[in-house]
Amino acid sequence: MYEFDIKSPSKLGKAVRMLRKHEDAQVLGGGQTLIPTLKQRLAAPSVLVSLAKIDKLKGISSDSGTVTVGAGTCHADVAADDTISALSALAGGIGDPAVRNRGTIGGSLANNDPSACYPAAALGLGATIVTSARDIAADDYFQGLFETALDETEIITSVTFPIPDAAAYVKFDQPASRFALVGVFVSRKGSDVRVAVTGASEDGVFRWAGAEEALSANFAPEALDGLTPSGDMIGDIHGSPEYRAHLVGVMAKRAVAAC
């Protein structure tokens, strides 16, 4: 790791001011991705602004129609809250128990790893990403591999998920990292069906329009027979583009069946 200072403000406003003041400052959430990245010397921030001491970023609350998760809430805490069972199951399947005690939803969404699970939940439930500056609809938030709508001094504060009528997330693990080789999040709320796919695409998490259309007409696994997503799928040592495309269909069907 290169040298840097760690600052731990207790107020959000102060954290934002620190990001503005230090041009190459970076936000430290749970650090479960950032710290390995720093060890590889792939990033060289002069200052890390830790959000751990900002209490208002933590916790889960719900009302009749939504669940709001503080950006600093760790995966284990989301896994323990079963208001949206598909969301808690997803959080309970990220990484491993130790990672789930440190990693945060805000960190995951800010990083937008193309194989991460949370982006599928945000997109698959039509969440709103609330930041220090504004509210961003999930449909506008994800902008490609590791790219989001956040600007450099903007901090995610919470994520609001509409409570669906039914939802499920099914993931096929990359055997080494246990990130999603393919993960599919399916939700249904009234007549609105959303299908979000992570792990598969060269463009990061995406909504599978063809599947949404088919499921809107008939919300059953067989409605997806013969469908494969368009677009460029990732090909690497863990799976070819064809394999990933195939898995998207399989995981989507399993998710529908689990709804």
């Binding site: 760690i6 731990s8 430290l28 390995p36 590889q40 830790s50 491993d96 130790a98 080494a176």
Partner: peptide, 26 residues
């Protein structure tokens, strides 16, 4: 150095964490 192996696991405030994936300052 990538947070997978867990030989560094300790408890911090009662929770299992990987001590090589957390700064001392934290």
């Amino acid at each position: 150095d990538t947070g997978q192996c867990g030989v560094c696991a300790v408890h911090v405030d009662g929770k299992l964490v990987k001590s090589c994936n957390m700064f001392a300052a934290e």
